[in-house]
Amino acid sequence: MKRRHFLTLSAASVGGALVYTLDRRPYVVSAQDKPVRVPLRFFTETEALDVAAAVARIFPSDESGPGANEAGVVVYVDRQLAGPYGRDRYRYTQGPFESGIPEQGYQGKATPREIYREGVKKIAGLSKLAPVEQDAALKQIETTSFFTLMRTHTIEGMFCDPMHGGNIGMIGWQLIGFPGPRMTYFEDVDSHYGNPFRPKPQSLRQVVGRPVKPSEDEA
């Protein structure tokens, strides 16, 4: 039987986060809890640690605010790769596969899962390096499709609805002043000209009052 992998997150850094138990039941972590072991759906623990280190250099936690670590970007990426997106459910994948011109878009056969599984080998051990060395290692691969994909996923994991595993505690939305889904701005849309209007973020689950099934949980 396949060994189950977990990623350990410090409860203090993800207080209030919605995570999922092994049987995919939602579970809210509070800051007082012990460190949480998030069951991984796609990565091994080693892979998850290296990807977590990479995305934390792409979107660092620094003086301008929290980053990929606090938002749980690696959890987002893990779930996406385990789900239909990871196996290319949203792409035309019939052959023949030929190399084309850039305007024809990505023509490769490799799925996002395969791109990560190969790519992560090139950053093996990254989590054990110092930030400066991590940056140097990422610089070596920054023109690869793996890095481009990881950069895209970092942005997605920072700003997705929390139901997808990233943007824990809506930390990414707070960072940019995005309120998430909301029923109305009728009174506000033509007010506040030139002044920041920053309503408190709400998740989709909070707005609709019940859980919504995300695409990564579909077949």
């Binding site: 290319d88 305007e103 700003f159 997705c160 609805d161 919504v212 995300p214 695409s215």
Partner: peptide, 28 residues
């Protein structure tokens, strides 16, 4: 009401034709 989700609707494009089944080919 459930569709106010950028990832599934604006990026994964849930409301579009299923491109895994049919697309177009293109050349200049």
């Amino acid at each position: 009401l459930d569709t106010m989700d950028e990832l599934d609707y604006a990026i994964r494009l849930r409301m579009m034709q299923d491109i895994s089944k049919e697309t177009v080919t293109f050349r200049h």
